[in-house]
Design a binder for these strands. Structure first.
Lengths: 172, 172
DNA sequence: CGCATTCACTTAACATGTTAAGTATCTTCG
DNA sequence: CGAAGATACTTAACATGTTAAGTGAATGCG
């Protein structure tokens, strides 16, 4: 009722299709998705308690680390697309958690920074967040966690190089 | 000009916060998110070419593997929440890629299955999909990919047990 | 039997992901 | 200078993620 192991007891038979395909539940994207969900499930309750979504938290964390940033730079750091970031910044600004001011040199750019209130909020949440992270690390193992991160980084890297080349050859 | 290293050359000061926190970009959730995005970036163009989103593709793949399933079971398999699945099924049904019929024994349940057209579409895409997957495997390494999947599974497992415990102890 | 509860699914409402188009500003170059 | 193009965002529109509420059909139990 709460959560069956959810394991594919369905991996049984019907491979008789044209192209077999890997067992869907063991595809890399699914593995990554589920792993991430398992991790985030640990954090979300605490964030929710403070009225923050995962993305808002990402933005505040990024801002707390770099003091001020242009929107584009922030998007890259928090791994959000421009439009999402635009909306979220609008809301965070309305809640007085961030501040913006257009750059003097270039009126198009706007510098975003975390507000005093934002810092205070961060300070309230950070201990819990770190505790959760520590617990995850403990459960999974420090060594293994480092290994995993290393592999994830390598995966990202070895695929990133592909994108560049394939943006030219879309005809075949 | 395009992308400043974005490294904390600004790390000058703000470490003087209350709780330091790990470098945000190296947090496990971010690593998982970026890795998954790197992988999906390889697939999305091909899916888009066939007018499918990532989630629609997940559903079709799941259905192709199990022939027919109840909505709830499908949600678990495709790792989607009920409401999302409901909407997507409505759309896939409108496109005649799936079929539904309510179960005789229990009028609440509806059995979902992939249609002939759906199978045909799958057959069109599967080869490309497999080719992309093969290329990813080749680049990253078969061995390493298996290791990564193994670790992701373990991570999921060691965190899942946490959830369970807190879902049972709601009486105390 | 009858009614409360549970169950399977859908709708609703709001936030985000994603692509395309729009707007204002800056840059380039004739 | 001034118009074309590039840049930095923002808006718009649609699909999905996510939580809560709704609906109709089974179940349990008096």
């Amino acid at each position: 009722m709460t959560k069956r192991p959810a394991d594919p007891a369905n991996g049984s038979a019907p491979a008789a299709r044209q192209v077999p395909m890997r067992d869907f539940s063991r595809s890399l994207p699914m593995s990554l998705l589920r792993a991430r969900e398992a991790v985030m499930r640990q954090f979300r309750p605490k964030l929710r308690e403070y009225g923050l979504t995962e993305q808002q938290w990402r933005i505040l964390r990024a801002l707390a680390a770099i003091e001020a940033a242009e929107v584009t730079e922030l998007a890259r750091t928090a791994f959000l697309l421009g439009p999402s970031l635009s909306r979220i910044l609008r809301d965070l600004e309305a809640r007085n958690l961030i501040e913006r001011k257009t750059a003097k040199a270039d009126q198009r750019r706007s510098m975003v920074s975390i507000s005093k209130e934002g810092v205070k909020l961060m300070a309230s949440i950070a201990p819990s967040s770190e505790a959760i992270y520590a617990e995850i690390t403990r459960r999974f193992g420090v060594r293994k966690l480092a290994e995993l991160q290393e592999m994830l980084g390598q995966l990202e890297l070895c695929l990133a190089s592909v994108d560049a080349s394939d943006e030219i050859t879309d005809d075949a």
